[in-house]
């Protein structure tokens, strides 16, 4: 039987579980969150562990770079992200100070690649996210990223749009980040009633005018644009979604 361990959907919970597994020398065939639906061969194990706030620095031996990578892998949508984190923690015990240089280990390699993808996507979204101004002067943006970038983006806009009220909505994950000029809170969208009435579109029109003007016709290069701005983001980018409507 494949032993699949279940954790309660937070990073702290996952790490507590991993610490427990490492301590008892148990080898999981997979680790999954509570949404997991087992197949015939899976044996689901749910342990009731008390989350330990210090577990993160204990497992990573205080290595902040490693902490960041584990956090980013956790945010990714990789199928085996939990298992990768498990093996990363396992190997950290073996190579305490040099773990991140061990590119020849599969888990290190994958973890670095995945965390790179996550930070890449988050960086892209820092540019591609578009706010609309609602009638109550609040700014509202919708994102549909592959990885869970909401917290990274919230941290970015907390500094940048300090004196504005804003909301960032990730409908695919059903979460929303809400900022009240002091702090942001990430909550489930069910707890919030949204009134998405937008203000006039003067600046949206101006922006689309600017966008259509700034490209040099003699240098038109659709492939290059697509490389930098993949099509999956277009539906949430004002100037692209509008142009698409026009051409249809």
């Amino acid at each position: 039987m494949n032993q699949v361990y279940i954790y309660k959907d937070t990073l702290e919970d996952l790490l507590t579980l991993i610490a427990f597994l490492l301590k008892n020398k148990l080898k999981p065939s997979n680790i999954k969150d509570t949404r997991f639906s087992p197949s015939l061969l899976d044996e689901v194990v749910t342990l009731n562990l008390k989350p330990n706030p210090q577990v993160f620095s204990k497992l990573t031996l205080g290595n902040t770079n490693l902490m960041k990578i584990i956090y980013y892998v956790y945010l990714s949508s990789h199928e085996y992200k939990e298992l990768i984190i498990y093996y990363l923690c396992l190997n950290t015990q073996k190579y305490p100070s040099t773990i991140l240089n061990m590119y020849n280990l599969k888990c290190v390699n994958l973890a670095l690649k995945i965390s790179h993808q996550v930070s890449n996507e988050a960086h892209k979204l820092k540019g591609f996210i578009r706010f609309q101004e609602l009638t109550n002067n609040c700014l509202y943006a919708k994102i549909t990223p592959t990885n869970n970038c909401l917290e990274i983006l919230s941290n970015h806009f907390k500094k940048r749009l300090k004196n504005e009220y804003w909301l960032i909505h990730d409908p695919n994950r059903g979460i929303i980040s809400i900022y009240d000029k002091k702090n942001y809170y990430i909550i489930s969208e069910q707890n919030l009633k949204l009134n998405l009435e937008t203000k006039d579109t003067k600046y949206e029109d101006l922006w689309c005018t600017f966008y259509d003007t700034i490209g040099i016709k003699e240098r038109r290069n659709d492939r290059c644009r697509m490389n930098f701005m993949p099509k999956k983001y277009w539906k949430n980018i004002l100037e692209m979604s509008r142009n698409n409507e026009k051409s249809n």
Partner: peptide
């Protein structure tokens, strides 16, 4: 440049906000 209780800050790595039809970034 950091946000001194106003609007906006600079990002050291730079951020591209869009790409024009010629593939050049618009930041």
């Amino acid at each position: 440049r950091s946000n001194k209780n106003g609007l906006g800050n600079a990002s050291y790595s730079g951020i591209c906000h869009s790409f024009a039809s010629d593939g050049r970034c618009i930041s």
